[in-house]
Amino acid sequence: MLRKGKLTVVGAGPGDAELITLKAIKTLQGAAVVLYDALVNIDLLEYAPNAEQIFVGKRKGCYAYQQEQINDLIVSRAKSHGHVVRLKGGDPFVFGRGAEEMEFAAQQGIDVAIVPGISSSLSVPANQNIPVTKRGLSESFWVITGTTKEHELSKDIALAAKSSATVIILMGMSKLKEVIALFMAEGKSEIAVAIIQDGTTKREKIGIGTVSTIEAKVLELQLTNPAIIIIGEVVRHREKINELIVQSHELETLEI
């Protein structure tokens, strides 16, 4: 079957413009059209100065385009313009609908490709010196959506709360009270929690607490979406590293 046009789904990384891959930059430079989401750093659009740039994201529940319209736009622009780049925050295959859009385009006779991105689920905690695994503390991690397609809390969170793994929840701020209740029911009120808003950007804010105190910290710091919730003792690594850095600086001062 003759195919016309191409779609490349590209991961833009977690927010810091420098955390995009070299392959993603080269792909943007060859784009005829760029369809980009709300969580994409708009500085990245400078890599595609000659491309038609269309915002198709959502902010606070307000959609520029419905998903069906985005799918149709991908196909129509691919057929009329050639190479369409669908630029998504983080990694497109981690709760990004990248796979769905590729399937739709392929069904319409469009060539498709994927350029993976640095997922916010790992890089945002790392940027705050929080490892998702650490020997002796956590042997695995869960990455879970806080809100399902039906706008309900994912049932996987209840399973994760029973484990000793680090739990990373994306898009879960509206369900925070329910999440906390699940961990409290498992007797984990003192497990460390971090909530990071606008991770890796200049607007980044972080709240640190425990399962029993994090809701108060959210109110105090007025933390909102977009944010990532990290639950696990690995969160305490951040404080330890920060203390070691301070001690190191104090020793350097004394030596001078």
Rank of each mutant, 00 (worst) to 15 (best):
Q69R: 09
I70S: 04
I70A: 02
N71W: 12
D72A: 15
D72E: 15
D72H: 14
L73G: 12
L73P: 12
L73I: 09
I74A: 11
I74S: 00
V75L: 03
V75E: 02
S76Y: 08
S76L: 11
R77N: 15
A78L: 10
K79G: 03
K79L: 13
S80V: 04
S80E: 15
S80G: 02
H81T: 12
H81D: 13
H81W: 02
H83S: 08
H83W: 01
V84H: 03
V84W: 06
R86C: 02
R86H: 01
R86A: 07
R86F: 06
L87Q: 11
L87D: 13
K88F: 03
G89S: 04
G89P: 02
G90H: 02
G90S: 06
G90M: 01
F93R: 05
F93P: 01
F93A: 04
F95N: 07
F95E: 06
G96H: 10
R97L: 08
R97I: 11
R97T: 08
G98M: 09
G98W: 03
G98A: 05
G98N: 02
A99H: 10
E100C: 02
E100N: 09
E101K: 12
E101I: 05
M102T: 04
M102N: 00
M102K: 05
E103L: 14
E103K: 15
E103G: 06
F104P: 00
A105F: 11
A105D: 10
A106I: 03
A106R: 08
A106N: 10
A106P: 09
Q107V: 13
Q107D: 15
Q108N: 14
Q108W: 14
G109Y: 13
G109V: 13
G109H: 12
I110T: 05
I110L: 02
D111R: 12
D111L: 14
V112G: 05
V112M: 06
A113S: 14
I114Q: 03
V115E: 12
P116G: 00
G117S: 14
G117P: 12
I118K: 08
S119K: 01
S119I: 00
S120A: 15
S121N: 04
S121G: 15
L122H: 03
S123W: 01
S123G: 07
V124K: 06
V124A: 03
V124Y: 01
P125H: 05
A126S: 11
A126Y: 07
N127K: 00
N127M: 10
N129S: 14
N129Y: 11
N129Q: 06
I130T: 00
I130M: 01
I130C: 00
P131E: 05
P131H: 02
P131I: 05
P131V: 06
P131F: 03
